[in-house]
Structures are given as structure tokens and as C-alpha cells.
Nucleic acid binder design. Structure first.
Length: 269
DNA sequence: CCATGAACCTGGTCGC
DNA sequence: TGCGACCAGGTTCATG
């Protein structure tokens, strides 16, 4: 489901309910969801502890309890939302936590999502790359780091140890805006296009956040709102539609094992 | 170092 | 209507 804009939207939507509150119980319906801790750990380290902050890092939602953090990764179909009452008709609720008189629900059709418990954010930071919406992502950084390796650009942009937050949709979108073919080798992209790529990444992600993300099928936030950035997509999902720049038809390919949408006229290799 | 394929899961869609 | 094949906003691990 979610890339950076969707995770950011979900994070903000649950944050206002939960900051300064504490969880009183947890119920597990799909045990694998808790990857590195148990309900026993919940009892001793999380239960009754104040949630000091909730924030996003990469595609993780972080619950900060000061003495430890709980991370949630939604993977493909995870949904995290607050409701006053549990909906018994929901078939795929993997976990739910009670706080005050409400519930934080974790629903996940494909069951790929995971909760983890850590002492601090250090473990995550070690394996994660830079945040694209900060000044860490600059033209100079990008040029330097595209040139010191030779990777297919799409595969590199999807790599969370390089830049975090981009997934299949926003990678295709950013490459379309920058007129870069997804199979281009990272060390053969001209400066002008690198410059455009950096701007496009920031632009696409921030515009999408403003629209509440992109809903293709599963993604919703706050129980049922959909993301409207789907209306702004230029490449992703637009097979056989006209490119909005040149009237050539968008075609679908496979790059880095992912469905990939390209305007072969604009995005020459 | 880099690319590829499989695994983890369920459900929707498409062609016959 | 039914059934199989293929596809899906992600990540990780094993293999050349």
C-alpha cells in the first residue's frame, strides 16, 4: 500500500488521537505481526507508558515511549486507524490496542506488515538512507552518489538504504518528470537530469502528501478517506493513455521486478 | 558490487 | 458460473 506520502498521512491522522495517551491492552489475531516482541514485552515495556510522540521515519510509523519505541511497517496492505468501537465485520484485523475508550486498529489483508520493539531509533537509522524531503537530498549529494556506483536508476531509487520513502508509484512518477529511462545506469545520467530528478522527487512526494496520498485499491487513512493524488499521476497506472507531455502512449514494462510505466518518447535511455 | 527470483499472504480481474 | 493464471503502494534472503 504505502510509500512515504501515505505513511506520513496515516501517521498524522493517528497522532492527534494518541499523543500523551497510553495503551492499556493488546490483542493479537495474527501472531507473526509482532516480529520481535511478545504480549509479555507489551505488558512490561509499553502498557501504561505515555506515548510521547508519533512520527514517521522512512516508511515506518514510530511510537515513541521515551524508554523504547514501537515501529509499525504497513508493507503492502496494512491500515492503521483509530475507532471508538471494533467493527466485527472486518475480516483482516491482525492486531488492536486499546487506549482510553478507543482502539488503535491494525488491519492487513495480505499480512505482510510488522510491529517491532526497540530501545531507540538507532537500529533503523543504521540500515535506512536519507529522507528525501529534507536538505539531505540535494543535487550535490545525488550527483556524488549516482556516480560512485553503477545501478539501474529505478532499482536504486527503490533501495531504502539509499533514499527512503520512494516506492513503485513515486519512482515512476519522478523518473517521468525528470525524463529518465528507469533502466538508465546511475553513473551515466547527465547533470541536468540529476538536477531535475532531485526536484521531481521532492515535488511529487510533497504534492502527494497535500492530497492525502494515492489510493489505487487498498490504501485509506482515518478509517476510510482515500488519497487523491491518484488524479495527478502522469505515468503510474496509465498504460495506453497519452503522455501528458508528448501525446505518445505510456507503455508498461518490468524493471526491478516491478510493473513500470514509461513514456518511451520522453524517457529515452 | 549488482541483478534476479522466491518467499511471505489474500483477493481482484481477466481470459477461456 | 467456474477455474486457473496473473497482478498488486514492500522487504528480505539466497543465488549466480
Amino acid at each position: 500500500m504505502p510509500e512515504l506520502p501515505e505513511v506520513e498521512t496515516v501517521t498524522q491522522s493517528i497522532k492527534r488521537h494518541l499523543v500523551n495517551k497510553s495503551f492499556s491492552s493488546i490483542k493479537i489475531r495474527w501472531p507473526k505481526t509482532l516480529e520481535n516482541f511478545s504480549t509479555y514485552d507489551f505488558e512490561s515495556k509499553i502498557k501504561g507508558r505515555e506515548i510521547v510522540d508519533i512520527y514517521r521515519r522512512a516508511k515506518y510509523i514510530i511510537f515513541d515511549f521515551k524508554s523504547c519505541i514501537m515501529t509499525v511497517h504497513l508493507r503492502m496492505t496494512g491500515k492503521l486507524y483509530v475507532v471508538p468501537k471494533i467493527d466485527k465485520n472486518k475480516k483482516h484485523i491482525s492486531v488492536y490496542l486499546q487506549f482510553s475508550d478507543k482502539y488503535l486498529i491494525y488491519e492487513d489483508t495480505r499480512k505482510f506488515g510488522r510491529f517491532n520493539l526497540y530501545d531507540n531509533i538507532g537500529v533503523l537509522n543504521e540500515k535506512l538512507g536519507i529522507e528525501p524531503l529534507t536538505e539531505d537530498l540535494s543535487f550535490n549529494w545525488m550527483r556524488q552518489n549516482l556516480r560512485n556506483r553503477s545501478r539501474q536508476i529505478k532499482s536504486l531509487l527503490l533501495d531504502q538504504s539509499f533514499i527512503v520513502g520512494l516506492g513503485n508509484i513515486y519512482t515512476d512518477e519522478a523518473l517521468w518528470y525528470a525524463k529518465i529511462h528507469p533502466l538508465s545506469k546511475s553513473d551515466s545520467i547527465p547533470d541536468e537530469k540529476i538536477k531535475k530528478l532531485v526536484i521531481s522527487i521532492k515535488d511529487v512526494l510533497s504534492k502527494s502528501i497535500e492530497s492525502g496520498g494515492t489510493t489505487i485499491r487498498d490504501y485509506t487513512y482515518d478509517y476510510s478517506y482515500v488519497g487523491n493524488y491518484v488524479l495527478s499521476l502522469q505515468a503510474y497506472g496509465r498504460k495506453d493513455n497519452k503522455c501528458n507531455r508528448c501525446d505518445n502512449l505510456i507503455t508498461k514494462h518490468v524493471v526491478a521486478q516491478r510493473g513500470t510505466y514509461i513514456c518511451l518518447e520522453c524517457q529515452k535511455q
